[in-house]
Amino acid sequence: ELSQDQQVLISYIVDAHNKHRIPQDMARKLLQEQFNAEENFLLLTEMATSHVQVLVEFTKNIPGFQSLDHEDQIALLKGSAVEAMFLRSAQVFSKKLPNGHTVVLEDRIRRSGISEEFITPMFNFYKSIGELQMMQEEHALLTAITILSPDRPYVKDQQAVERLQEPMLEVLRKVCKLQHPTNPALCTASRSSRVMAHER
């Protein structure tokens, strides 16, 4: 069972996760406009920048994050940004957006000139995340946990980060067992904050 405090923590993180998204006008451009390969690539890099900004806004709302040493905040974000972005992208792709949006997005990515060497593992990752059938609470918690990894390069006060991460790991373990009682695979994966490094 989740304690009252744990339920509050979950709703706080899920709200932050839902609130901070790619701006509407950028999403519209991605889905509607026709571009050549070079324009696709530029648009995707613009989107990546926006995504990082969205991620920082989410992170600022993780309870306790802003009480960390400022340079440690930077080190955590820098060390986790790519993993967290892939997690978020995987969620977008696995939600099966209406009207074939994921088809358009995938097509755009495949036609952006990015090497197949990167694209294939990326879509394989999205697929394997999709197969876990994670609920939004699990996505939000896993993203927060990924960002609050004490062993990122240049983090000075690892214990302060652990003190924030550990309660969230505990909550995720419980949520996982409650929501997937017959699927041990997800619970095993989420027990380790190194799941992202493995997937990478």
């Binding site: 900004q53 920082v56 600022k60 905040q73 930077i74 974000l77 820098k78 790519v82």
Partner: peptide, 21 residues
């Protein structure tokens, strides 16, 4: 690619956001 985007710059600016307000 992440370093080419000036990842740290983007992060620093975004973190400073509230302080400027």
């Amino acid at each position: 690619p992440a370093s080419n985007l000036g990842l740290e710059d983007i992060i620093r600016k975004a973190l400073m956001g509230n302080m400027e307000e």
